[in-house]
């Protein structure tokens, strides 16, 4: 269980995290979604007991991160963004070290179990320096899970590894959510949608939206973007034609065509109007809303 209440972190005059509040319950995967520099890592560092908050409070499994730091650290498994490794140790030695440091009762059995879980058993005697990036990521996960913590915090675990491994990591995270409270961060919207039970979107240190992926999607999809390419019409004529449609908010030229933003689904009207005007419709497809769009959208609406 993670309870965050008005958590704030200030670096000098810079507000890295500004009064954020959210909760994560056992058996739940909560995603922190935001662009780089939004304050995701800072938030996680405060929750893991690495750095103290400037203001506000956070409780992990009922313990305050500041007052009971050691108790918190005992209960948290943490994988930082760049997997920290000791290159000269073997896989087994590395995981055993963290197991002992975190006071695991029977380190040997636990280490074997956790290596099995992340599929590194056959690499147990490999030096960490010889592991590929994907395998290092799994090693980092092993390190975070070796003391069987009730709370697992993963900072961008899918960054910089190949697509197959990304899928594996996402599955692993979802799997973790069955028994642990998982907080994980990402800047990829689709990933958050796939993996999380709840998403907390933060930007510039502030929470701008939170909820289940479904609620967020319906909240956000109040409009539609289309890419339209027309043969025969010039730039100006085409834009004028599209703008005249009801429901269209804006038309911007992009490449050989236009991006049309509309309040309602205008795909039929667009096709109709273009052909009736005697032009040929070459392309008509919805443009997926990127994270940037959503942020612009949310920030814009906040004003």
């Amino acid at each position: 269980m993670i309870e965050v209440h008005k958590l704030t972190k200030r670096y000098g005059y810079h507000l890295a995290v500004d009064q954020i509040s959210f909760e994560a319950h056992p058996g739940e995967v909560v995603g922190l979604l935001g662009p780089n520099g939004a304050g995701k890592t800072t938030t996680m560092r405060m929750l893991t007991g690495f750095m103290p908050p400037s203001e506000g409070s956070a409780r992990i499994a009922g313990f305050d991160v500041l007052a009971d730091s050691l108790e918190v650290r005992r209960r948290v498994g943490y994988l930082p963004e760049r997997v920290p490794v000791y290159p000269d140790m073997t896989v087994k030695g590395y995981v055993t070290f963290w197991a002992k440091l975190r006071g695991v009762e029977k380190p040997r059995a636990r280490v074997d179990a956790v290596l099995e879980r992340v599929h590194l058993t056959d690499r147990r005697n490999t030096l960490v320096r010889n592991l590929s990036k994907g395998l290092r990521q799994r090693l980092g996960l092993a390190q975070a899970l070796v003391h069987d913590p009730p709370i697992v915090i993963l900072d961008e675990p899918t960054i910089g590894i190949d697509p197959q491994q990304v899928i594996e990591v996402r599955e692993a995270v979802r799997d973790l959510g069955k028994h642990h409270t998982v907080l994980f961060s990402t800047h990829i919207l689709s990933e958050a949608e796939q993996v999380c039970d709840r998403v907390v979107i933060i930007n510039r240190g502030k929470i701008i939206a939170q909820g289940t992926p479904d609620t967020l999607r319906t909240q956000l999809q109040h409009g539609l973007s289309l890419y339209v390419e027309i043969a025969g019409a010039g730039k100006e004529a085409g834009a004028k034609l599209l703008k005249a449609l009801t429901g269209v908010e804006s038309v911007t030229a992009q490449g050989n065509g236009f991006v049309v933003r509309a309040r309602t689904d205008v795909r039929g009207e667009v096709a109709d109007r273009v052909t009736r005007a005697g032009y040929r419709l070459l392309e008509l497809r919805p443009v997926a809303m990127t994270l940037e769009d959503i942020f612009l959208d949310l920030v814009g609406r906040g004003k």
């Binding site: 893991t48 690495f50 975190r102």
Partner: peptide, 14 residues
Amino acid sequence: REGTLELLLTAPVS
């Protein structure tokens, strides 16, 4: 440099 200090400082040791 390797970032392992962050893990050490979040381990339950002083």
